[in-house]
Design a protein around this nucleic acid. Structure first.
Length: 424
RNA sequence: GGAGAGUUGGCAGAGUGGUCGAUUGCACUGGUCUUGAAAACCAGCGUACCGAAAGGUACCGAGAGUUCGAAUCUCUCACUCUCCGCCA
C-alpha cells in the first residue's frame, strides 16, 4: 500500500509512474487527497472537542471533591453537548478513513524507473540469455510422457486421490524432489539465508499483511471451519514474521530461506499450458526473502538475481532473465525479474522464479519498520524470490537431458539424488 | 471435545472509577566515576494521528456500552495458557 503522505506530496509523480502500468490513477489519487484533507480536518476538530471534554471532566471531578455540587452539574450540560458532537465527528472520521483505505488498496505499487512500458508478457525486456539449447534425439518426448515412461510421476493417481493438479511422485521422481529441497536449501544457507520452516497454513491477518487478502482471496485454499488459508508461497508466512516489528538498523538485512509446499487454486486455468508439471494446484518451492534497508534494496535485488543464476548454472539449464514490463508487473512489486528455463521438448520458456523488490509497499501493510539514525521508525523494503520452484525445473531437467539411454542428472544435483542417470 | 485461568509498554510485573500513557525491576541508550572494564550513581527510553511549533488526541487483546470521567464496571468476540480426554 502506498503511503498517503507520499501521495499527497507527490500527486503528479504518482500518476505519471502508474501510467507505466497503463493504470490511470488520476481519479483515485485526487479522491484520496480530498479524503485525506477531510480526514485531517475532522481529526483536528475532534481532538479539540475531546480536549475540552477532558478538561471539563477533570474540573467536575475537582468540584465534586470540593463539594460544589451545583457548579459540577452545570458543567455536565456542556460535557453532554461535546459528547454528542464528538460522536458525530468520530463517525465521520471512521467513515472517511475507511473510504480512504479502500482507495489506497486499489493503487498498485509505483514501478521503478527502469520498468519498461508495455501491456503483456510479450513486452517484457529480455535482459540476458545464458546456456545452449540442447539438441534432442528424434524420439524426444515432453516431460509428462517421460514421467510416465520412467515411473517418476503419476498424474492420474493424483486425480483419484485429490483432483487434477496434484501429482503423485514415486521412486526416483520422489527422490528427485527431495534432492531439490536439499540442493536449494544448502545453496541458500551458504549465502547467509537463515533456514526457516514456517507453518503451511496462515490466519487472516497474515493474508492481509502480504497482500493476498482481500483482493486475491479466491486464489488461496480456505479452511473455512477454522478460517485459515493454505499458503500459496512461503513468502506469506516468512514475511509475516516481521509484521508489526520494529528492527534496529544494524539488524538489517534479515535473510530467510524456506522450503514449503505451495497451494494455488488457479481458478479458471486450463488448456495445454497446464499439461504435466506446467501448472499445478500443489507444488514445492524454496523461497528466499530479505528485509532490507531502503538505501540498498536494489543492490540486494541484484544479488538475489545473481544468486538464482548460479543455481541455474549448476543445474546446467539454459535460461533467460526478463525485466517485467509495466503491464505484467505484479500489483505489489516495484521491479521484478523473471527467470525462465528453456524446456527443449515443449520448445518453450517456463517461468521458474520471480524476484521482486516491493520497496515499502508490503512493509506499509505489514507495519515493518526499522529505527534509523534519527531514532524515528521508517518502513523497511521487502524482497523475495523463488529459488526455485520445482515443477518446471523438473520438466526442463527431464526434457533437456533425455537420451536414448535414459535421463541424465547434472553433476551438482547427482550429489543429492545419489544417481546420475534415470533409466527404465 | 470438556473444565478452568488469563491477555497492561522489548521482557517481567503493579495498578479494581478521577492528577494513570500508566508504579517498579530487568534490558537498552547517554553521562559521571575508572588506566580500562565491571559495579555504583545520574539522566533518557512506546506507537500512531493532527500541528510550522508549542502542544493536543488516541491506544492497557478487539468491538460496543454504563459514567461528567474507564486499564479499572457491563456485554460480545478473538486469541493464549493450564488440567482432563483423544492422538502423530
Amino acid at each position: 500500500m502506498l503511503q498517503i503522505q507520499f501521495i499527497r506530496e507527490n500527486r503528479d509523480h504518482v500518476i505519471e509512474r502508474l501510467a507505466v502500468r497503463n493504470f490511470d490513477a488520476a481519479e483515485i489519487v485526487d479522491q484520496a487527497i480530498e479524503l485525506d484533507k477531510k480526514r485531517r480536518e475532522t481529526q483536528s476538530t475532534l481532538d479539540a472537542n475531546l480536549s475540552e471534554a477532558n478538561s471539563i471532566a477533570k474540573e467536575i471531578g475537582q468540584l465534586f471533591k470540593e463539594g460544589k455540587r451545583e457548579e459540577a452539574d452545570a458543567k455536565k450540560a456542556r460535557s453532554a453537548e461535546l459528547k454528542e458532537v464528538s460522536k458525530g465527528l468520530q463517525e465521520t472520521l471512521n467513515e472517511t478513513q475507511d473510504q480512504l483505505q479502500k482507495l489506497l488498496y486499489q493503487l498498485p505499487n509505483l514501478p521503478h524507473p527502469s520498468v519498461p512500458k508495455g501491456n503483456t508478457d510479450a513486452d517484457n525486456e529480455v535482459v540476458m540469455t545464458e546456456g545452449d539449447v540442447p539438441e534432442l534425439h528424434d524420439a524426444a518426448q515432453p516431460h509428462w510422457e517421460l514421467a510416465k515412461e520412467y515411473g517418476l510421476i503419476d498424474f492420474e493417481l493424483g486425480v483419484k486421490i485429490t483432483g487434477a493438479g496434484f501429482p503423485v511422485y514415486t521412486g526416483k521422481g520422489a527422490r528427485l524432489q527431495r534432492a531439490l529441497v536439499n540442493f536449494f536449501l544448502d545453496n541458500a544457507t551458504a549465502q547467509g539465508y537463515l533456514e526457516t520452516m514456517p507453518p503451511h497454513v496462515i490466519n487472516e491477518a497474515s493474508g492481509y499483511g502480504t497482500g493476498q487478502l482481500p483482493d486475491k482471496e479466491g486464489q488461496m485454499y480456505h479452511a473455512t471451519v477454522d478460517d485459515l488459508y493454505l499458503i500459496p508461497t512461503a513468502e506469506v508466512p516468512i514475511t509475516n514474521i516481521y509484521r508489526d516489528v520494529i528492527l534496529k538498523e544494524d539488524e538489517l538485512p534479515r535473510k530467510h530461506t524456506g522450503y514449503t509446499p505451495c497451494f494455488r487454486r488457479e481458478a479458471g486455468s486450463y488448456g495445454k499450458d497446464v499439461r504435466g508439471l506446467n501448472r499445478l494446484h500443489q507444488f514445492d518451492k524454496v523461497e528466499i526473502v530479505q528485509i532490507a534497508n531502503p538505501k540498498d534494496s536494489y543492490a540486494t535485488l541484484d544479488t538475489m538475481v545473481e544468486y538464482v543464476k548460479t543455481l541455474l548454472n549448476k543445474l546446467e539449464l539454459p535460461y533467460r532473465v526478463l525485466r517485467l514490463c509495466g503491464g505484467d508487473l505484479g500489483f505489489t512489486s516495484a521491479l521484478t525479474f523473471d527467470m525462465e528455463v528453456y524446456s527443449a521438448a515443449q520448445e518453450k520458456w517456463l517461468e521458474v522464479s520471480s524476484i521482486s523488490n516491493f520497496e515499502n509497499f508490503q512493509a506499509n501493510r505489514l507495519k515493518c519498520r526499522y529505527r534509523g539514525e534519527d531514532g524515528k521508525p521508517q518502513l523497511v523494503h521487502t524482497l523475495n524470490g523463488s529459488a526455485l520452484a520445482f515443477p518446471r525445473i523438473v520438466a526442463a531437467l527431464l526434457e533437456n537431458n533425455q537420451t536414448p539411454e535414459g535421463i541424465r542428472i547434472p553433476a551438482a544435483l547427482a550429489e543429492y539424488t545419489g544417481f546420475d542417470m534415470i533409466t527404465k
